[in-house]
């Protein structure tokens, strides 16, 4: 992240947030998990619980959406957080992407 260090000003969270580019703070990105015929349903549920700290019913709801509808929008987040979540899901070999929320 660029341009966050300003001399003579004690950095704090509020300051860092202001220094972020608008696009990085904009919750305008959706993280989507796409269906595939290979990942096990129990495994997908477990990954959602682990990555998002969801309770099992919520994780199962999204897993079933993926299975029945072909995809599920998991979260709406800023660019940075969406990238983070996609990376976490892909670590588990799930088919996940982030898209601009139009």
């Amino acid at each position: 992240m660029a341009n966050t260090a300003v001399p003579e000003v004690r950095p704090d969270i509020e300051h860092d947030e202001k220094a972020k580019p608008e696009s990085a703070k904009d919750p305008g990105y959706v993280v989507i998990c796409w269906n595939d015929p290979v990942n096990l349903m129990d495994y997908v549920t477990h990954v959602f619980q682990t990555v998002f700290a969801w309770q099992r019913p919520k994780a199962e709801f999204h897993m079933k959406q993926v299975h029945n509808l072909g995809k599920s929008v998991l979260v709406r987040e800023s660019l940075e957080k969406a990238e983070h979540y996609v990376h976490q899901l892909q670590k588990y070999s799930l088919h996940a992407t982030m898209e601009r929320d139009e």
Binding site: E83, V86, H87, Q90, K91, T97, M98, E99, R100
Partner: peptide
């Protein structure tokens, strides 16, 4: 990283992280 956008710096970073 995304189905709709073309590969960019973020995609490169994702590949490196994976």
């Amino acid at each position: 990283l995304s189905k709709s956008s073309t590969p960019d710096e973020s995609q490169k970073l994702l590949n490196e992280a994976l």
